[in-house]
Design a protein around this nucleic acid. Structure first.
Lengths: 231, 231
DNA sequence: CAGAATCCCATTCGATACTG
DNA sequence: CAGTATCGAATGGGATTCTG
């Protein structure tokens, strides 16, 4: 029977379910378990290895990560892949359905940024900082702006391009960048872009390296704005 | 252990379960617990009593609902209120922050509606059907449409107004409605609007009562469309 | 009747240790 | 590196019982 079979799909994802036809409830069955949405966030800029994911999710145990990847794979959100030799290693990547979840991550992040009590001093992964740039990008502030920047966060490289059409952030080297920012850890960039800490100060502290057109920094930092807080 | 103890204290203050500065992670600390987002959904159209919430969340236990309401209150998403006498009863309602979470619910619902395996034969509360109408409203299809409808689902009354500015759905009687649809259970309306079941068929089965301009039904059902599925 | 408190069991989580 | 195995602690949920 169709009903039985579909019910069992939800049941197979994990033991409990909501018994609710609402789309939001179904979404919670696919993405609502602990860590699941953050794993998707870490995969948003391309495939990652098991250990990359652990590094970006401070506190997750190997067991939980294994279980969650398993569940997300059964939900059709994540798939395993094998990189071509000689770098033959197993990676996890989003399916088309998984990539389509970006608006969910963005909506939740935007909402939470307006909630009181947010502790921005906690650890921050490169992927989550880059996702937040997509989310907090202010299209109005970018009407007259246009730039390509390279962002290097430890071993992770990103290319950031702003046009009047919007913002595009991809993983990889940006050879055409007019500005290149290099840091060891994502929170330094967060301090620059969201915290209003002057670039010169971070540079002098040896936390930030700047190459290219330094005047673009002011333009770049003006493109992102956190929402007003409630309460 | 020291780490465990610190985690627990932090959790009580505002949940630092994820140890992650990312806004999405913070959002999950506020709304990510089991049932939490569905409780917010049930409150989206106005204050509800404890037992209303239970009725709209099939399978939740009194204990879980109590705990979740407690957590949502501490998170600043929900607040308790007392209705004025003589109907003096305790109700729960969203704060401004809680109301601002509608885009999160909508994004998750829209995403999940495009995922395979969704069982739409499960129970459906009145609030979740009305939320889905907001979410699945197709502004392009409504460009030339304009109507006010009254929707009665058992004891719950809603007013639905479509203009070229969008759709507005509120709880309460719609005295100015040109169309009035009355059903005992939400799934009947879902069958009409999303399932393509003809109104006459539901009417003949005694599941649907129609008053007012019957021609508006075709217009109304044309305003909502489910997204294409992946996979 | 609304909803808080208690008990109990099943599940889940995280830390550590271990394996191919 | 990519997971398993295991164990103790925490959490979740159902049933039942109280309190006003």
């Amino acid at each position: 029977m169709k009903l039985q079979k579909e019910t069992k799909i939800a049941e197979r994802l994990h033991g409990r379910w909501y018994n609710d036809a609402c789309g939001t409830a179904f979404g919670l069955e696919l993405l609502g378990e602990r860590w699941a949405l953050l794993i998707v966030r870490e995969l948003m800029f391309g495939p990652r290895r098991f250990s990359d994911l652990r590094a970006g999710l401070p506190g997750i145990s190997a067991k939980s990560l294994t279980e969650r990847l398993d569940g997300l794979e059964r939900a059709g959100v994540v798939e395993r892949a094998q990189l071509a030799p000689p770098a033959a290693m197993r990676v996890y990547r989003l399916t088309a359905l998984g990539e389509a979840a970006e608006p969910v991550i963005a909506a939740l992040g935007r909402w939470a940024a307006s909630a009181p009590g947010h502790d921005i001093t906690l650890p921050l992964s490169a992927a989550s900082l880059m996702m937040s740039l997509r989310t907090m990008f202010d299209a109005r502030a970018a009407e007259c702006a246009s730039l390509v920047a390279a962002i290097e966060i430890g071993p992770d490289s990103f290319r950031l391009e702003v046009t009047d059409a919007g913002i595009a952030i991809t993983r990889g080297e940006a050879v055409d960048a007019a500005l290149r920012l290099t840091v060891a850890e994502a929170p330094v960039l967060a301090a620059l872009i969201y915290g209003g800490v002057p670039a010169a100060e971070l540079e002098q502290a040896g936390q930030l390296t700047i190459a290219g057109d330094r005047a673009l920094i002011a333009i770049l930092t003006g493109l992102f704005c956190l929402p007003d807080k409630f309460g």
